[in-house]
Design a protein around this nucleic acid. Structure first.
Lengths: 221, 221
DNA sequence: ACCTGAACACCGTTCAAGT
DNA sequence: ACCTGAACACCGTTCAAGT
């Protein structure tokens, strides 16, 4: 399964093959031996070019994070633009499910979010937030988005839950609110829930200060 | 290191030893061989009592989740009580960091939150939310709390980040807002951030409907 | 400078054999 | 019914040896 196995082995080639392996079969499939087989080399050659498995994963994460696209805010109010940024970021993370797994496994969740921080800072300023307040806003949105994606990913991977919401809320259980029981027994519409939650958070945090007139940010890089 | 190795091996004894191992040295230390050594038995005996590693982890998660304490809401308004519930839940999860890792790894994040759902439903009702609205509220809080804890856990485990916030916001970088740059260069006060975010979310979601007079829930089990 | 195979110290799991 | 050791098919990593 090696593609072009005749040229000399390169750090780039190793990372490329590793990325392909993860993309197709998930992070667990990335073993040094399988990777070497794909490359048509000895296992130990990988160690010379990129170091051990830890270093390989580090490089892989860095590489894939760099590939994430730009985030361009659009919308009339800061609230609309921030919700848009959050949705775009969520979409990007969902498009790279294995990357999210890798990043989380390696404790680099924060790294994943750095590209979006600048954009959010600009929106915070546009909404009249400054200093520590603006920083708090940026981080609240960051934790919200990344946390939601992690929980989502986890749910999708989860098998049938034993005493799940289904059974728990299936019968009466909810007292005098059958509509609630039905809603909790249904699977979650995560997209909708995400937008609702982000909008609620943003609305509260942006509403607190002096309420300056809302204008577009200086420039959209 | 076996404690009472003379009596017959029990499913309970195996789970107890496994829990102790995870508590002391983390989930990675839970290998079938290490566990057998702790118990003073052959590795294969474990298979007879609890099945393979997957089944062992399942049982362990179930066991530890059941050990989580009750959650008793307190406070005058639904907002105060929900924030209190969220803080209590976060504290419980933080007290069992390895459990959170196990649960997340096995895709059972949802399971972790079931005990708190009933409490939140009661508060939603007390705040005047009903039906699908109440369900959405419960799930928004659920995703928020669990997501936040996951991100937090991840950050604590993370080593020194290479192009971290520190370097990124260390110099000018933030244009004309040095206070913001300083704030983002500092480590996050996660407790504070958590409360701020949950309160913002809850306030928005509870403010939407008809605003019925706020009364305490019927009974606090 | 680059690549190799052999070897080491680990894994989880199966299985036939004991009592 | 319960427990055992041997064996299998995997891991990541090291290291001396090649060119």
């Amino acid at each position: 399964m090696a593609s072009g196995a005749r040229s000399a082995l390169t750090r780039e080639a190793v990372l490329e093959a590793a990325a392909a392996l993860v993309r197709r079969h998930g992070p667990d499939a990335l073993t040094m031996r399988a990777l070497a087989a794909d490359l048509g080399t000895a296992v130990t050659s990988i160690y010379w070019h990129v170091g051990g498995r830890e270093a390989l994963l580090d490089a892989l994460v860095e590489r894939t994070v760099a590939e994430l696209g730009e985030i361009r805010p659009s919308g009339r109010t800061p609230e609309q633009r921030v919700v848009g940024v959050a949705r775009e970021l969520r979409r990007q993370l969902r498009d790279h499910p294995h990357l999210v797994a890798l990043v989380h496994e390696r404790g680099l969740t924060e790294r994943m979010f750095l590209p979006a921080q600048r954009v959010l800072v600009r929106e915070a300023h546009a909404a009249g937030l400054r200093g520590a307040r603006a920083a708090e806003f940026v981080r609240a949105v960051q934790f919200q988005v990344v946390g939601h994606v992690l929980v989502e990913r986890n749910r999708e991977r989860a098998p049938v839950q034993q005493p799940g919401e289904r059974e728990l809320w299936g019968s009466q259980a909810a007292g005098d609110d059958p509509a609630l029981a039905r809603a909790l027994a249904r699977p979650v519409d995560t997209e909708r829930l995400f937008v609702t939650a982000v909008r609620a958070l943003v609305r509260s945090l942006l509403a607190r200060p002096s309420r300056l007139p809302t204008r577009a940010p200086d420039s959209v890089a």
